[in-house]
């Protein structure tokens, strides 16, 4: 009997189809100064014009945004922290500090997770399955990234003068949170494809995250479509998290080469956050990139029923400042979540 159930929900090589279909509720976004000057400025719940938010460090500022997004989400859903069963969160910093320090304030049972910029979809996968299994009624999940805290950890100090290559991406300063509920009005999680690590062994330049992540995105999208026997046109839109200009093109080309054409209904959040004149080279990246893009721009379109079926594929490059100095290539991952609005 149990085996039967497993077989029913597990489809193809890597995918899961949900029956109860958790509802995505109350997405909330907090954006930093550069993001607040971008094309999506009007889509965010809160915009800051101060990069450090009057806190004493960039790390504190990031945590501040994450906490704020969580409280905004719970406020929108009309829930107090006691009514939320579990909290999933992750960020880009060592030891996942923003997430843990935010959880300290929330006092909700907490799972700290790290999949770099794909953490948003990772938490949706895990939360969706918890609701499916009947373990929770409401799950809060949140992600954050901060340009300065990420720069100083992964690359150079913020005031250091250097020329970035044209394929470099700009880490988004911001945070996004939302709830998964067993009932309510909103887009529902229809199926999930947790991704595998893909590492071609070729990409060793930490600025070239778009290329590393594109291979993972292509792999997950291809696997999702074949597992569920779907054509890309099944979706109104396929959205990747933060591939940027280079990664988006590479993702399209890899899939095209394998007989899957996604270009007509494909968007990348990394291309939406900033104007080209904001000097961000290939586009945006970071955990908050997919959160700001999807929660801020696409979710309202789903609520208005302008978009019915979306495949959200958040991508992450799982390198560290230690590994690239030691000459390791960059492993990447992408998790896909299919959302449907009836």
């Amino acid at each position: 009997m149990v085996e039967q159930m497993l077989v029913e929900k597990r489809v193809g090589e890597q995918s899961i189809v949900l029956d109860k279909r958790a509802v995505l509720l109350a997405p909330s976004t907090v954006a930093g100064p550069k993001e607040s000057l971008g094309p999506l400025a009007g889509c965010f719940d809160r915009c800051y014009d101060d990069i450090i938010l009057k806190e004493k460090s960039f790390e504190r500022a990031e945590c501040h945004m994450l906490e704020e997004s969580c409280f905004l989400a719970m406020g929108k859903a009309g829930l107090s922290p006691e009514e939320v069963d579990y909290f999933f969160s992750g960020d880009l910093l060592n030891q996942n500090i923003s997430a843990s320090f935010c959880a300290r304030k929330l006092a909700i049972p907490f799972f700290g997770i790290f999949n770099a910029c794909s953490t948003l979809c990772e938490s949706m996968c895990l939360g969706g399955m918890m609701i499916e299994g009947g373990f929770a009624k409401h799950i809060l999940f949140a992600v954050s990234s901060h340009n300065c805290s990420a720069e100083r950890q992964y690359r150079f100090p913020t005031e250091y003068g250097s020329q970035r290559p044209g394929y470099a991406q700009w880490t988004v300063t911001g945070a996004g949170a939302a709830l998964l509920g067993s009932s309510g009005e909103g887009p529902r999680l229809e199926s999930l494809t947790p991704g595998r690590i893909v590492d071609t062994g070729l990409i060793k330049d930490p600025y070239d995250m778009g290329s590393a992540m594109a291979s993972a995105a292509a792999h997950t999208i291809y696997t999702h479509l074949s597992d569920l026997q779907r054509d890309p046109s099944y979706y109104d839109l396929i959205i990747t998290g933060d591939l940027g200009g280079v990664g988006k093109k590479l993702n399209e080309d890899i899939l095209e080469r394998n007989g899957v054409r996604i270009a007509p209904n494909y968007a990348d959040c990394g291309m939406l956050i900033y104007h080209p004149h904001q000097q961000v080279d290939a586009g945006a990246s970071g955990c908050a990139c997919s959160a700001l893009g999807f929660f801020g721009y696409f979710y309202p379109k789903m609520l208005k029923k302008e978009l019915h079926r979306i495949l959200l594929v958040a991508t992450g490059s799982l390198h560290s400042p230690t590994t690239y100095l030691q000459g390791e290539s960059m492993p990447a991952i992408a998790h896909a979540v299919s959302l449907e609005m009836n």
């Binding site: 193809g12 291979s215 292509a218 792999h219 696997t223 080469r257 394998n258």
Partner: peptide, 11 residues
């Protein structure tokens, strides 16, 4: 898919 897995990302 199994057959194509290697083709998917050709070095």
């Amino acid at each position: 898919v199994r057959k194509n897995k290697d083709v998917l990302i050709d070095r």
